[in-house]
Design a protein around this nucleic acid. Structure first.
Lengths: 152, 152
DNA sequence: TTTCATGCAACATATGAAGTTACATGAAAC
DNA sequence: GTTTCATGTAACTTCATATGTTGCATGAAA
């Protein structure tokens, strides 16, 4: 299965934005993620709807953080990017008339539901600010500056 | 992402086999799963390697259960079909030189690892026989016979 | 009014699971 | 022993879908 990397991508972008002063354009963010500006806008649209970031058109426009990073968790971001399904496994048919398949599906669905709940509760425990702190710890460990990373 | 349904499919097949007397051909099992005999053989190959089923060529050949269903868990079957990744999410790049991405990846990987462990431990708690019992309970509830289901 | 930026729809590409075809191998029936 | 039936497997095709791309509309600042 092709894995969904929206959450990974948007977190990457957000952490970079936390280390920048002014607004960042989609083009700048796309360069950081090695992708296309349109992809950035697409992913950020969900965050804008939830008020985590703001966007501005025209000269000097771009994206800015519009929330308190210590009050927003990875679970919030996950939901903002559309809650892409964590689970890569599924059923052969979704409407089984076969009782065997019903038994199998209900057993597996139980596991899938548990797993999805564990995942979201794990993400709830991590604030954006905590991720940012973790990054700064790594930065200090290497003796690098923030600037070094904006172009990595 | 296209979801992997090997585990769901093979469990469906195994439960049907538990309710059959003689060997079942790939063609019969494929009919039950509404798929192609080759797909059945491909999935069953892993189970044969682990000794959970046996196969025989020629007249009267086919697949038979070769294990004690109460001693084999869904986790065993999951491993036998190749441990397809449970997680449908991933990273943008697997070898990030960027420290931001490293921080993001390590946070998400933590969640993914936890989730995968929870999943497998959930499966370990369900024996094949338990699934089969569950099926028979549903069957009785409906007042049907096993035969009805072999053709559903 | 020109330039820069987002907003968004429509289309293109790439990846991987599942389906399919073709043929080799080997066992039972005759 | 040869015909029939079944698995074993490689190679190829199909299909779903995440991501990438193009094109154009909208609106703000210079």
């Amino acid at each position: 299965m092709k894995r969904d990397s929206k959450l990974s991508g948007v977190l990457h972008v957000l952490l970079h934005m936390l280390g920048m002063k002014g607004p960042a354009t989609s083009e700048q963010l796309a360069a950081i993620m090695s992708t296309n500006p349109v992809v950035v806008r697409r992913i950020m649209a969900g965050l804008r709807e939830q008020g985590f970031v703001a966007s501005a058109k025209g000269h000097g426009g771009g994206w800015t953080i519009a929330c308190d990073p210590s009050a927003v968790t990875l679970a919030d971001i996950y939901m903002a990017v559309g809650e892409p399904s964590l689970v890569a496994m599924g059923h052969r048919t979704e409407m089984p008339g076969c009782l065997v398949e019903q038994s199998v599906n209900s057993a597996l669905d139980g596991a899938f539901r548990e797993v999805q709940a564990v995942f979201q509760s794990h993400l709830e425990r991590i604030a954006l600010a905590a991720l940012s702190d973790e990054f700064n710890r790594r930065l200090a460990e290497r003796g690098q500056t923030l600037e070094d990373q904006q172009h990595a």
